[in-house]
Design a protein around this nucleic acid. Structure first.
Lengths: 263, 263
DNA sequence: GATTTCGTTGCGATAATCGCAACGCCGGTT
DNA sequence: AACCGGCGTTGCGATTATCGCAACGAAATC
């Protein structure tokens, strides 16, 4: 063993290390060499080489023959989509939403980015004066709503126009505001860490949303949606809870670089 | 079994089996119990249980506490998206497209489903009379084009209306034809196994596309796009090649149910 | 052209894994 | 109710796959 890596008994070390190798790939570092990763994971070169070869054989990784470095492979694409579609996610997300819903007394949603739009993935409805019931699976245009802002504010700025292009044709400026205004709102959201929408659809409905990241990119957002009268007075406290919930999910969807999973 | 499973030296058995466990999940069978999988993979219950526990600890699987069965977990979502974004995929796809492009003398594209649309993922341009140059990253409405038909013809029929809803509002019937006609075309595509579009965008451009599957769902499609004068005379031969290329990619993105990966 | 760094492979000691068996538990059946 | 079958889980010893070291050739760097 290296040092403190006591595996909690019943965990297969070799398989676990293979998962650590996969988790090492992020948006900022999408490719790794063998020695590279060996140092980072504090494992022997030979071990990492064999792990990566094993992963590559099943197309979980692919080796760029030119650079001899590895990238995430096609096998993960299909699995990722299947994971997204199935309700394994809701098993993880729902408890978090339930907590948030209970703490705030309002409905909560988990939305995931989908092209330039976002899709309602998991929803917890809180019976209240304005029953805002979200339809799981429904697609929303990305440029609107607190959820949309919380997601796309963290996209690379140059990708935004292409993503929104299909929606923006034919949309009036009144619907989405000018590009410049959208960019300004995104800057605000990035600074605060969460987005607030005051009744873009319905004046009495307020949304508060925070981004969920995975491996360095925005994956989706957690939102509280409820009556303006309820939410406005305690906006700061609620925003804090929303951000906390989103951060908790970020941990589950892919640990941020440098923070190993707890034992 | 232990007799014939000679691992090709340099492959870590335990890690490899963990990948086999992941690959066992499909659209048709999105959840598995321990004994269930143990039988299917011909491994001991205890071994599979430890594998799944290891995967679950890193959130690659999640256990439904009620049923005690496992589903694909959130960690795969982030990885899948990252794999889709990075160009590890093109490392695998490009050689296939190059072959197809060389064999047909036309441009080839690999498109992936994205919401109700599809996005150009990898493109190989063949210089010709009509240089049809595809922009990687570009989004197209799902109801059009051979690529779109090859993809969405294999979607569950009940999902189609919701997926296309945002595009269909404001679109004229002339653009997409009636719903009934679309459904009829999809039936054709499913029967043949590939889709042909005769100049929907440009009368001189013909597209031939076949679906790529992963774990039981359509992931995207491979298409040949070229001058009608070239393609029409040899449509059958080209379609056969397109289907072969798509099937080859299906193998790499996730082996279809029942067909284990070769050693 | 020298030198470092890389990815890969061989091999023996070692520790992790494997398979068996037993356990407690739940759900359906008798 | 008692029974039974199947489930997921755990302990444990023999075995075997794994690990770390060292060496190798090739490629990149200076």
């Amino acid at each position: 063993m290296s040092s403190s890596s006591r595996v909690p008994s019943g965990v297969l070390q070799t398989a676990d290390r293979a998962l650590l190798v996969l988790a090492a790939f992020t948006e900022r570092e999408p490719e790794h060499g063998v020695s590279d990763l060996a140092r980072r994971l504090d494992l022997d070169k030979s071990q990492v080489q064999r792990l990566m070869a094993t992963l590559a054989r099943r197309d979980f990784l692919v080796a760029d023959p030119r650079t001899r470095r590895y990238r995430l492979g096609p096998a993960l694409v299909g699995l990722g989509r299947l994971a997204e579609r199935g309700d394994g996610i809701s098993t993880v997300v729902r408890p978090v939403l339930l907590d948030l819903s209970e703490a705030t007394g309002e409905s909560t949603v988990f939305n995931v980015a989908d092209g330039g739009r976002y899709r309602c993935s998991v929803a917890v409805d809180q019976p209240g004066p304005f029953r805002y019931t979200s339809a799981v699976g429904q697609l929303f245009p990305g440029h609107g709503g607190a959820s949309g802002h919380a997601i796309f504010a963290f996209y690379p700025e140059e990708e935004i126009p292409a993503l929104f292009a299909p929606e923006l044709e034919g949309a009036t400026d009144a619907t989405i505001g000018t590009r410049a205004e959208l960019r300004r709102r995104y800057a605000e959201v990035r600074e605060r860490g969460y987005a607030v929408s005051f009744g873009e659809h319905d004046a009495r409905v307020v949304g508060v949303a925070a981004p969920v990241f995975a491996h360095g990119t925005v994956l989706g957002s957690v939102a509280v949606v409820g009556a303006a009268a309820h939410l406005r007075p305690q906006l700061d406290a609620i925003a804090e809870r929303v951000v906390a919930a989103a951060d908790a999910l970020t941990q589950r969807f892919g640990s941020p670089p440098g923070a190993p999973q707890p034992d």
